[in-house]
Design a binder for these strands. Structure first.
Ligand SMILES: Nc1ccn([C@H]2C[C@H](O)[C@@H](COP(=O)(O)OP(=O)(O)OP(=O)(O)O)O2)c(=O)n1
Ligand SMILES: [Mg+2]
Ligand SMILES: [Mg+2]
Length: 1107
DNA sequence: ATCCTCCCCTAC
DNA sequence: TAAGGTAGGGGAGGAT
């Protein structure tokens, strides 16, 4: 699929423009602005060829941006310099080397008389004494180089005064080998007039952290309030943009660094704080906020830009800014002042700690506030949230005490009339709200956008009608918009304003009509059936809206939702339009197919490819044909819509079916841990949303955007670029809204996707199969509750419905009678997982490096690729499907075996090594489950030869990356099916080596056949322990037997039961019980228990309490 | 047939 | 630099 579109920008530079999911839908945009936008999509192959030729457009674009910035900074520096000759030389050099790989700066500096710091290029990190400026001055005047941005290629020393109390074990390590040196080195070297050995000025190693989650959390809390831009700045620099110099020092750009401006921003005290989304409340922990913009740095922001600060607090902030620092005032009027809101003192600690160096991609470190800040600025997040607001809070609108219009009664009295719908939509909503207070902009082309700067990959949110006449559309990159209309004014968002206006609008709507369906914050359907004069009503509503908000709305009036909506489009801007029944046919016939709601980019393309352009064209085809071509429902929809038929009704509010959160911007991970931590914030976010909605749910879905192979850095700043979207879900036995459980499941799901963290470009967590929290607390507690329900809430939530869905374990327990009492109080250190009991194998995979040594039966490309927008949907060749297939065909035994996916082995091996050195247990003590470890896919092994053929048949793993290869079974060599079991020691247990003993066979069968309904514990529970112990002749044979049994059992625990603590516990419990009746079991249990505990400690980081 | 999962598509 | 979310509909294909 061509997912990026080539675009010639104004300068004629080739830029690849993302044409991913979201962009594809911009059908009108593409169609109407063909002059500026390349009409053709480029294939991925084409993009790759760009890359291979060293011309990766994304990089190019970014590099250009940075080069320009660096150049400016260099000029700044030279302008600063006291030596005029130097300045001139610099100018000349700068002119000569317009690109950034000039070695000019260092030459010039070396020409200076004082060359103490020759070859030294420092990056100053965080607060220092002396200050940045002073250090810069010293460097400038003594032959050194002061780097404004960190670059591993150019920086030789990191200067840093303080490490925060966040206990970095070895700062040097974090800087990846670059020395971190105290500023005294510079000062004293200068005083000594020679370069002193920096080794004597190294920042001391700081005490070790108290090992504890608190500490880690605190450390991450320290990353709060950080603008992602800073991260990106550093990261891109070090990653890509400046692969120009080497440390040996040929190349040095000298940059001037600005002061650390102080913006004193206080927590907002006034009103507004009750706003649910809190966007009007700037939440800042420390009072003093800092920002790291170069002194004279001014983003090229249009003067029209108004910072997004809630209007009633803006004054106060600016005032405080002024008090704090004069230079801050400039910034306050700059859109980048916003960054100041996110940069906290802690960031400097982080800087100081070398974290900026170590983790260049701070954008998505699981810094809670990256997500928080992202949402605070995400228009799409707002409109998504608002839609829900106006749907679910519908009842609270129109109840503000104001007189209700008699329109309501008119309609209720006359419900038999022919259906009549008003569709109402605010005109260029986001622009209108802002332009209200900007009379100077009236009539001019205006668009709302976060940024108007050089790179231009910020998206237009809304454009007013003058702007639209240039072809500017929502979703367009601002640079494209500017290319179409150089005079376009860019204004900033006013989210508080949007909500305010929308509230007023909905109040008005509800006052006039009882049946209101909120489509979005700026759009609604009104069922006005029975109203004597809908046209007049629409007109009055519009007037009222304008009077209340000074924003105009347009309306469509027709007999159904479809037509009303189409009418609105026709009416815009600031108008209304009615379609009479007798005009419908005519109206529809000429309508282009892509104007039908539900026809987006993809369907449009399909239709166009069949030469279907108008609704009339659609009607030339039979409904059956349409259904066959485009699917039953879609075909029917096309057929009906094309005739103007739409039998949907206005639905005031409907229950949400899912609640989720996702972030697909700024997500960059370096390691598993980053991903894990991001998942933590997502889990918290989703749990919190569930809780405020009073919901809990059973199905948890993790969505990942994964950089597609070959895709480079996205054209869009910090965008996700060309990605494959992956999702995986797990249904748990009982609805939850607990962050802990979401996290636990989320981790499993993440692990099961086998993604290199560096390739992750987006992540989302969603909960579906929702129930109300109050749905069923009448249900009595099951015996499992003490285990399943960490917080009281969970216990509270039990319901009859849940009961029957708890499945086997529950019933098993119920049967177990007195055994229930043996259930220990759960160790509270252990976050517990709700028993899914669907032991979907790969969701419970064993994780870790030892797996590597265990030779896999066969390799499998578990990676599935979804190539979006391809005609056929992916055929399931995924592991899970085949696993279930096999399990289902049943009667053959199945066992899991670790199989590292191709292409991931090398990548994770460093991780593995790391994990090996330090003990895993130690590590996982703090990060329960999976942290830093990779999960491996599993494959199967039949235990019975007669099943072997079948299993190998169904168990063939398809290497097909596209995931659409049909299930064409490949015969599998028998020895494969006889292959290894994974064992914790990394050795394999060959089936053929197994002691021929019915006892072992029994366990093998149990372990092998655990499936969705029956875990090992249930086998153990029902075992009558009739096995003749005497069979084991000699002691060594017995030992071997026990050993093998334990291996099988631990194998089971590591794989199938990993992530299912209840199952681990129950297995142990029942084993112990069997031990009470049978010597052999006692022996096995004695050996197995510590092993189980070790595994639990390793996987969960806690102790398993066995009663 | 109906459900489920994993997608893709669409709208604002 | 920039803030590419949220949620539902629906289709394909497999399980039940
Ligand atoms: N891709 C999009 C689409 C919409 N919006 C926001 C900005 C819009 O102002 C608001 C409402 O969307 P509309 O589709 O109603 O568009 P407008 O109101 O801007 O214009 P119109 O006059 O066509 O309704 O949602 C956005 O941010 N990004
Ligand atoms: Mg609108
Ligand atoms: Mg709208």
């Amino acid at each position: 699929m061509g997912k990026e579109e080539e675009e010639k920008n104004v300068q004629g530079a080739i830029v690849v423009h993302d044409k991913d999911d979201r962009s594809r839908k911009r059908k009108l945009l593409d169609a109407s602005s063909g002059a500026a936008w390349g009409a053709n999509s480029y294939s991925v192959a084409k993009i790759n060829s760009f890359k291979e030729s060293g011309n990766d457009p994304g990089f190019d674009d970014f590099g250009r941006y940075f080069a320009e910035k660096q150049r400016k900074l260099r000029e700044q520096y030279h302008a600063d310099s006291s030596s005029k000759a130097l300045r001139d030389a610099a100018a000349a050099a700068a002119a000569q080397h317009s690109d950034h790989k000039a070695g000019t700066s260092s030459e010039m500096v070396s020409a200076k008389s004082n060359t103490i710091f020759q070859g030294v290029s420092i990056f100053v990190d965080g607060f220092t004494t002396p200050t940045h400026q002073e250090l810069r001055f010293i460097m400038m005047n003594n032959g050194g180089i002061f780097e404004n941005y960190f670059s591993r290629q150019r920086v030789t020393h990191i200067i840093c005064s303080t490490l925060p109390d966040n206990k970095i074990m070895n700062p040097r390590m974090l800087s990846r080998g670059l020395p971190i040196v105290k500023p005294e080195w510079i000062v004293e070297s200068m005083n000594a007039n020679k370069l002193l050995p920096w080794e004597n000025y190294q920042l001391e190693r700081i005490a070790y952290a108290h090992p504890g989650q608190q500490t880690i959390a605190a450390r991450f809390a320290a990353y709060r309030e950080v603008s992602p831009s800073t991260k990106a700045l550093v990261s891109v620099d070090s990653e890509t943009a400046f692969q120009v110099g080497s440390m040996e020092g040929s190349v040095h750009s000298v940059a001037k660094v600005g002061p650390v401006d102080t913006l004193a921003l206080k927590n907002e005290r006034a009103g507004k704080s009750s706003e649910p989304d809190g966007f009007s409340t700037v939440q800042i922990e420390s009072q003093e906020k800092l920002q790291i913009l170069p002194e004279n740095y001014k983003a090229p922001v249009c003067l029209d830009m108004v910072p997004f600060v809630p209007s009633d607090s803006a004054q106060e902030k600016i005032k405080e800014d002024t008090e704090a620092d004069n230079s801050a005032l400039n910034i306050a009027n700059d859109v980048h002042a916003l960054e100041a809101n996110h940069l906290g003192k802690n960031d400097h600690q982080k800087l100081a700690s070398g974290e900026f160096v170590n983790r260049p991609f701070r954008s998505s470190l699981s810094d809670t506030d990256f997500v928080k800040n992202f949402f605070k600025f995400s228009r799409l997040h707002f409109i998504g949230t608002w839609r829900n607001r106006y749907q679910t809070l519908a009842s609270s609108f129109g109840k503000d005490g104001a007189v209700k219009s008699k329109d309501r009664e008119l309609m209720e009295a006359n419900l038999d009339g022919k259906p009549m719908i008003i569709h109402l939509d605010m005109d260029c909503f986001f622009v209108s709200v802002v332009v209200r207070n900007r009379p100077d902009l009236v009539g001019k082309p205006v668009a709302v956008c976060h940024s108007d700067s050089e790179k231009g990959t910020a998206e237009i949110s809304s454009a007013n009608y003058p702007a639209r006449s240039f072809g500017i559309k929502a979703g367009m990159y601002v640079r494209s918009a500017k290319a179409l209309c150089p005079d376009l004014k860019i204004v900033s968002y006013d989210f508080a304003g949007y909500e305010e206006v929308a509230d007023k609008v909905y109040n008005i709507l509800h006052r006039h009509c009882t049946k209101v369906e909120a489509v979005s914050c700026d759009e609604a359907f009104l069922d006005v059936t029975g109203h004597p004069d809908p046209i007049d009503l629409a007109s009055r509503i519009r007037e009222e809206i304008y009077a209340a908000t000074r924003c105009s709305a347009s309306a469509g009036i027709a007999e159904n939702l479809l037509l009303a909506r189409l009418a609105t489009k026709r009416a815009k801007p600031n108008g209304q339009f009615a379609i009479k029944s007798e005009e419908v046919r005519q109206f529809m016939a000429a309508l282009p197919v892509d104007e039908l709601p539900g026809v987006g980019w993809a369907l449009q393309e399909k239709l166009h490819s069949k030469k279907l352009y108008t609704c009339a064209d659609l009607l030339s085809i039979s409904k059956e044909t349409l259904q066959k071509q485009y699917g039953t429902k879609t075909g029917n929809m096309l057929w009906c819509y094309a005739q103007g038929i739409d039998d949907r009704e206005v639905q005031p509010a409907q229950e949400r079916k899912s609640i989720g959160a996702e972030v697909n911007w700024g997500v960059r991970f370096e390691c598993m841990d980053d991903a894990q931590k991001f998942l933590v914030t997502l889990s918290n976010e989703v749990a919190s949303r569930l809780q405020s909605a009073g919901s809990c749910g059973r199905t948890i879905t993790l969505k990942i955007k994964k950089r597609r192979e070959g895709a480079g850095e996205p054209a869009k700043y910090l965008g996700h670029g060309i990605c494959d979207s992956l999702s995986r879900s797990e249904t748990v036995g009982h609805p939850t809204n607990s962050a802990e459980i979401l996290l636990r499941i989320g981790r499993q799901l993440y692990a099961s996707l086998h993604i290199d963290p560096e390739d992750v470009r987006g992540m989302g967590l969603q909960v579906s199969r929702l129930e109300s929290v109050n749905a069923g607390n009448r249900k009595k507690h099951s015996a499992l509750d003490s285990w399943l329900a960490p917080p009281k809430k969970e216990i509270h939530n039990r319901s009859v419905v849940h009961d029957k869905e708890i499945t086997k374990l529950d019933t098993t327990l119920a049967r177990s009678g007195p055994l229930q009492k043996e259930l220990p109080v759960p160790d509270h250190a252990l976050p517990l997982r709700i028993a899914p009991l669907s032991m979907r194998p790969e969701a419970n995979e064993v994780k870790h490096e030892e797996t590597y040594e265990s030779k896999p039966v066969r390799e499998k490309e578990s990676e599935q690729r979804c190539l979006p927008n391809t005609a056929a949907h992916a055929a399931p060749s995924e592991e899970r499907r085949t696993v279930q297939q096999v399990l289902h065909g049943t009667e053959h035994k199945v066992i899991k075996l670790q199989t590292p996916p191709k292409g991931q082995r090398q990548k994770i091996s460093p991780l593995s090594r790391k994990g090996k050195g330090k003990s895993i247990a130690n590590k996982s003590k703090r990060s329960p489950l999976n942290s830093g470890l990779e999960l491996q896919p599993v494959s199967r092994l039949p235990t019975h030869p007669k099943a072997a053929r079948k299993v190998s048949f169904a168990g063939v793993e398809h290497g097909d990356a596209s995931g659409r290869k049909p299930v064409t079974p490949e015969p599998q060599p028998v020895q494969d099916t006889q292959h290894a079991y994974y064992s914790a020691s990394g050795q394999s247990v060959k089936k053929s080596d197994l002691v021929d003993h019915s006892f072992v066979q029994q366990i093998l069968d149990w372990v092998s056949t655990t499936n969705t309904t029956r875990g090992l514990s249930s086998h153990l529970l029902s075992s009558r322990c009739y096995l003749p112990v005497s069979e084991s002749a000699d002691t060594t044979g017995l030992e071997k037997l026990i050993h093998q049994c334990v291996k099988l059992l631990t194998q089971y625990i590591r794989t199938t039961a990993s992530g299912n603590l209840e199952e681990v516990h129950l297995s142990l419990l029942y084993m112990k019980r069997l031990g009470g009746r049978c010597k052999l079991w006692r022996a096995v249990e004695e050996v197995a228990r510590p092993a189980f505990k070790d595994i639990v400690a390793e996987l969960y980081g806690g102790k398993l309490a066995i009663s």
